[in-house]
C-alpha cells in the first residue's frame, strides 16, 4: 500500500512547503518504523535456521547445554560426515533422486497433456469433468490412503518405489489447473496458424504452447520437486526395506535410533534441505509467481 498523498496544487506556497515537509518527516518516521518491524520479524524467522546450523556444528556433549549457546566451543564439521555414514544415507539419496525425478517428469508430461485438453479442445462433458477436477482439490489426502494402499498391495507393489511414482503419471489436479490457466492466456491465433499448416494437436502443444509456457512448466517442476523431496507420508506407508528408504524416511529412522545425537541429526537434516534451498534461491521469481498463480502456498 504505497501512500498516496493528494497533490497539493492550489495550496499557498508557504503552507504547501510546510505540508510537504511534514509529510516527508512522517514518511521518514513511517519508513523507520516499518524497517524496524521488518528487521525484528526477520530475526525471528531466521533464528530457527541459525539454531539448526549452530547445533549441527556442536560436539555431542554440548548439544544439551543450559542455557543454550549460539556459538559452538569448537566447530565439529565431522558431524556432517559421521551423520551421513551412520546410516546408508547415500542409498537413501539415490532413492529420493529416483522418486523425485520420476515424479517431476511424470507430472510435467501428464499434466501438460491433460491441461491442453481442458484449455483448447471442445467436447461434451468437459465442464463436468473440470468441475470434478476442481472438487478433488478439496479432498484431503488421508481420506483415500487406505483404499490406495489396498490397491497397491493387491497388485504386489507394496515395498517398492512404484506407489510413490505411478500416481504422478496420471495427472495432478493442482498442476493441471495451473497449466490450464496458463495455456488459456496464450492467443489462439497461434494454434490456428499452425493448424492451417496441418499440424496435429500434439504438434501444436509441442511447437506452439510449450515454448511459450516455460514459466508455468518451471513452476510445476519446482513444486513437484519440493513436494516429493520432502514427502514423508507415502514412504512411511509403502516402504519396508531400509534399502528402499528415501531421505525423509531415513531421517525419521535416524531420529528414532539416535535421538540423543542431535548434532548429527541436524547436520543430515541440513544436507537434505540444501537441494530445496538451492532450487528456491535459483528460481525464486518463478516460484513466487507460481504460488500466486495457483494460490498454493508451499506446504
Amino acid at each position: 500500500m504505497s501512500r498516496v498523498l493528494p497533490r497539493p496544487t492550489v495550496v499557498a506556497p508557504a503552507a504547501h512547503r510546510r505540508a510537504l515537509l511534514g509529510a516527508r518527516r512522517a514518511g521518514l518516521l513511517h519508513r523507520v518504523l516499518v524497517w524496524a518491524l521488518l528487521l525484528a520479524g526477520s530475526v525471528l524467522f531466521l533464528l530457527p535456521f541459525l539454531w539448526m546450523v549452530s547445533t549441527s556444528l556442536k560436539a555431542s556433549d554440548a548439544v544439551f547445554s543450559v542455557p543454550p549457546r549460539w556459538l559452538p566451543s569448537s566447530f565439529q564439521w565431522r558431524n556432517y560426515v559421521d551423520g551421513w555414514t551412520i546410516l546408508p544415507f547415500t542409498t537413501f539419496l539415490r532413492n529420493s533422486l529416483i522418486v523425485t525425478f520420476a515424479n517431476v517428469l511424470g507430472n510435467l508430461v501428464s499434466c501438460t497433456l491433460v491441461a491442453y485438453g481442458f484449455a483448447r479442445l471442445r467436447a461434451r462433458g468437459k465442464n463436468v469433468l473440470f468441475l470434478l477436477l476442481l472438487a478433488t482439490l478439496m479432498i484431503p489426502r488421508e481420506v483415500t490412503i487406505v483404499p490406495r494402499f489396498l490397491l497397491f498391495s493387491e497388485v504386489g507393489l507394496v515395498n517398492t518405489l512404484w506407489p510413490l511414482i505411478l500416481p504422478a503419471w496420471f495427472g495432478y489436479p493442482f498442476f493441471i489447473f495451473l497449466l490450464r490457466q496458463f495455456f488459456m492466456t496464450i492467443p489462439r491465433d497461434l494454434d490456428d496458424a499452425a493448424r492451417m499448416d496441418g499440424a496435429s494437436h500434439l504438434r501444436i502443444l509441442w511447437d506452439v504452447i510449450l515454448p511459450l509456457s516455460r514459466p508455468a512448466l518451471a513452476t510445476v517442476a519446482i513444486f513437484s520437486f519440493i513436494g516429493n523431496w520432502t514427502n514423508l507420508l507415502d514412504p512411511l506407508i509403502y516402504l519396508r526395506s531400509t534399502d528402499l528408504y528415501t531421505l525423509a524416511l531415513g531421517l525419521n529412522l535416524f531420529r528414532g535410533q539416535n535421538f540423543t545425537q542431535f548434532n548429527m541429526l541436524m547436520a543430515v537434516s541440513i544436507i537434505t534441505l540444501v537441494p530445496v534451498l538451492a532450487v528456491f534461491f535459483l528460481a525464486q521469481r518463478t516460484f513466487i509467481r507460481g504460488v500466486t498463480l495457483t494460490g498454493m502456498g508451499g506446504r
Partner: peptide, 13 residues
C-alpha cells in the same frame, strides 16, 4: 523461506 522447507527436518528442528 520457512514455508519452503517443510517436512521432517523442520519437525526435528
Amino acid at each position: 523461506l520457512p514455508a519452503v522447507v517443510s517436512g521432517i527436518a523442520v519437525a526435528i528442528l
